[in-house]
């Protein structure tokens, strides 16, 4: 009996491994092979045209140690830049979970399916607008002379605000823009996760006379926990990375706003705008990755302690 069971187990393992194989092959060729790019961060990468890759990498390019990282630390603004990056990412992390989960739960209860579908499609539309376009639209609202907002202010008797030169408003504007753009997408994912919840649980709750809030607290939220935890952990992995478009294109790269809009990615972009130096950008992203990786591991360990099922590994 034991033998039979373990034989079966072995077969299952083999079958499941076979299931994973195509994806593994894909990951090896499209994610793992390019990983050698990480060593650009420690090299002065100077390829000779026409030489094979390996020669370009090891013969033509000298090791330079940590030199490629130094441009990051020459800026006296670096603490502020790091603060901005962490500040926005933390806010987005929290709002990016609370708001979509809330909306998804409500939407799942709406009686009319057609209406619920309409809400979903409208909410998800902004996700597909590029940041450049979002930047233009926002300019339509905030332009000093022709902007809609100043227009309304003038009608109300106020004076026009120079929005693109007033950093004090922009933390709020950026957060609002990000929430507006990404909520629909996350909401869809949670909505989809809610459909995986066993409906009979709700039926029982209904028969027991549970209120809506009780139902949410005792059924929906606990069952959404793994998905929320997964998304939370994965997003922690990119805590030092920021959406370049949001911080550069949406404020139209206005100099006056730079104290509140500059994040690490914007800094790197501005530094390398004149001359593309791929070793420097490799160094910057290596740094982001290392920090992200450690955060992810810590978060995963904590969550595993709290609730083993919700952790990633």
């Amino acid at each position: 009996m034991r033998g039979l069971k373990s034989r079966k187990k072995g077969r299952t393992n083999r079958e499941l491994l076979l299931f994973s194989l195509p994806a593994i092959v894909w990951y090896v060729s499209f994610c793992y092979l390019p990983l050698f790019g990480i060593i650009f961060a420690f090299k002065d990468f100077t390829p000779k045209p026409g030489d094979p890759l390996v020669k370009n990498l090891f013969v033509n390019s000298p090791w330079v140690g940590l030199k490629n990282f130094s441009f990051l630390f020459l800026s006296s603004e670096m603490p502020k830049i790091l603060f901005n990056t962490l500040f926005y990412n933390t806010v987005f992390l929290i709002l990016g979970i609370i708001i979509p989960v809330f909306l998804a739960i409500i939407l799942a209860e709406i009686h009319s399916r057609v209406f619920s579908g309409l809400v979903q499609v409208v909410m998800v539309l902004p996700y597909f607008l590029s940041w450049v376009i979002v930047g233009y639209c926002l300019y339509g609202f905030l332009a000093t002379d022709e902007g809609q907002v100043n227009h309304i202010l003038r009608i109300l008797g106020g004076s026009a605000v120079f929005w693109y030169q007033s950093p004090e408003y922009w933390r709020f504007i950026l957060i609002l823009t990000e929430v507006w753009k990404s909520t629909g997408y996350s909401m869809m994912i949670y909505l989809c996760a809610i459909t995986s919840i066993d409906r009979t649980l709700y039926e029982c709750a209904r028969l027991d006379g549970a209120t809506f809030l009780q139902r949410v607290r005792h059924i929906t939220l606990p069952l959404l926990r793994p998905t929320v935890a997964t998304i939370f952990i994965l997003r922690l992995g990119s805590l030092l990375a920021s959406d370049f478009g949001l911080f550069y294109q949406v404020p139209l790269n206005s100099n006056s706003l730079q104290p509140v809009t500059q994040t690490l990615d914007v800094y790197v972009y501005q530094a390398l705008m004149m001359e593309a130096n791929f070793s420097y950008s490799a160094a910057a992203s290596f740094l982001q990755n290392i920090v992200g990786c450690s955060l992810l591991l810590i978060a995963n360990a904590i969550i595993r302690k709290l609730d083993a099922d919700s952790s990633l590994m």
Partner: peptide, 9 residues
């Protein structure tokens, strides 16, 4: 590179 980033501000 670092100066460039500052200048762009």
């Amino acid at each position: 590179t670092a100066l460039q980033a500052i200048y762009n501000d």
